[in-house]
Amino acid sequence: MSDFLRHRQVEFRLFVVLLLSCIALGITTDTFLTLGNLTSLLNNNSVNLIWAVGLLVVLIAGGIDISFAVASSVVQFVAAKVLISLGGGNWVLGFLLCGSVGILLGLINAFFIHRFRIISIVVTIATFNVFFGLLMWLSRGRSIYALPDWWTERIILFEHQSTDGTWSELILPVAVMAFCVGITWLLIRRVNLGRQLYAFGDNPEGARRAGVNIAAMQALAFGWSGLMAGIAALMQVNIVQEVVPNALYGRELEVLAAVVLGGARLGGGKGTITGCVLGVLFVAVMQNGLNLLGISPFAFQMLIGAAILVAISTSNISLGELFAERSRRQET
């Protein structure tokens, strides 16, 4: 346990803050700590979590991706068009289609980043706009409502009626989310590929000399982020039962904020699944809490921004350390 605390300071701190906020909300509102609220919290944040683990992989590898939410919109649109033209399809086809279109979009990012050594923030700002612009232009901004039944049907994994008659339930996206979290954990903790991603983010030159295939690492990181964007796209449609081209625009910042709050570092080499999940939950609880406390939803973004500013100002991961380190002999 002490080992855990030493290596997972950010996660632990976040966990304490999250726990305290939950307790506070439990006391100040009578709805927060109900099964119904907690399950809907999970249902509503499954898509964010799927994106978050994809983004985490990119951050670990030393990149940044802000195009994933818009990529999901593209995937939804393409999948809807193709599936409708195929006469409906099914879940297997849906996963295959969404996954591969998502991966393709991710690989576009990876290609420009690796082949031309352009910094990832610039590439993904560009692809963000290309994806969104083309999508809005080609779809003429029109939503698609006539979707295959299997796609929009609510699949309930668990339901429970409490004594006052309200229903609480967990739906399919929660299970898919759990699967994505688990498989990403496997990738980055338990498989050699994931460890190479960490190494690449930590010391790119060292990784190169050890023989790590840099192109493959960029492709894996952004491809994974794309795959998660594809799966998130499929699940988001399952929840809202429609394809609205601009519905996901802007969601990327919320997710990025959550992942960064969870201790992933811009610049690579750091970040855990635990932190990532805690980060998303923290943002979700904050939003939910503000809502329950009757505070204007407009305040939410402001508080998230402030929370990140406070978190980075108080964290000890810093260039400040680097400055202090100059007193030590450099490893030349």
Binding site: R189, V191, N192, R195, D202, A207, A210, A216, G269, E331
Partner: peptide, 28 residues
Amino acid sequence: QDLALFPNMSVAENIAFDDMVGLAPRGV
């Protein structure tokens, strides 16, 4: 000479890192 190690990774993993290299997926 500049060690080419990975500052954020553990000592054990730095020592054994070369086993991780390669694109064939395998467990750690």
